[in-house]
């Protein structure tokens, strides 16, 4: 009969209306500032810079190679290379960013900077409460604001951070082994040089 559907629909909404007062399961809303759902491990918001050790400036992994700046689709990264060098995690002297700014009002959270970084220095953060009343300066994060410790990285993305650490450790071990081999070779060379000074040293480029 005409109007039957309307009555059925009205019964449905009435059921919802009454049910929402009776059973809390019906209300799926999370009342955000008081209630929160844990962030997913794969969540990503804006990039941050990883550093090792206690001091952010000394431990920063970034070597200011500027690949991310070039690859960034919306061009939201600004890097200024330092003039001097500081040792990186393997001890090799590297440049570091004298200035590293990300404009998060421009950033589109594409993660391309993370994909292209050869030094595992830039990673995606899960922090999303970034609202500010200063829409120009407040949304331009400088390197101090961007720097987060490796421990924090482990906290937010444990699996990924574990893999990264394993890779870095392997690299470090390889570098250490190489350095050891190089040192032994150098020592041997020095010894042989002492015993047979006429024999020329092996070319340095071959070992790299």
């Amino acid at each position: 009969m005409l109007g039957e559907g309307i009555l059925k629909g009205m019964a449905e909404t009435a059921k919802n209306f009454a049910g929402s007062f009776v059973s809390a399961d019906r209300l799926t809303t999370v009342q955000y500032p008081e209630q929160r759902i844990p962030t997913f491990e794969n969540a990503r918001v804006f990039p941050f810079l990883v550093y090792d050790g206690p001091d952010w400036a000394a431990g920063m992994r970034c070597v200011a190679c500027q690949i991310c700046e070039k690859e960034c689709p919306p061009k939201c990264i600004y890097i200024e290379k330092s003039r001097d060098k500081k040792p990186d995690f393997v001890g090799k002297p590297q440049f570091y960013p004298a200035r590293f700014d990300i404009d998060i009002s421009v950033c589109m959270s594409c993660q391309i900077c993370v994909e292209v970084c050869p030094f595992e220095a830039i990673k995606m953060d899960t922090e999303f409460e970034l609202a500010t009343d200063d829409r120009f300066r407040g949304l331009l994060l400088d390197r101090q604001q961007l720097a987060k410790s490796n421990e924090y990285y482990h906290q937010i993305h444990p699996t990924e951070a574990g893999e990264v650490d394993a890779r870095l450790d392997a690299e470090k071990a390889a570098a250490a082994a190489k350095a050891k081999v190089a040192a032994q070779a150098a020592a041997k060379a020095a010894e042989t040089a002492k015993t047979a000074p006429a024999k020329p040293a092996p070319p340095a480029g071959g070992e790299d």
């Binding site: 909404t13 009435a14 919802n16 209306f17 209300l27 809303t29 009342q31």
Partner: peptide, 10 residues
């Protein structure tokens, strides 16, 4: 509020 309840919201 009523519309919310009908749609299972607060």
């Amino acid at each position: 509020k009523g519309l919310g309840r009908m749609q299972n919201r607060y």
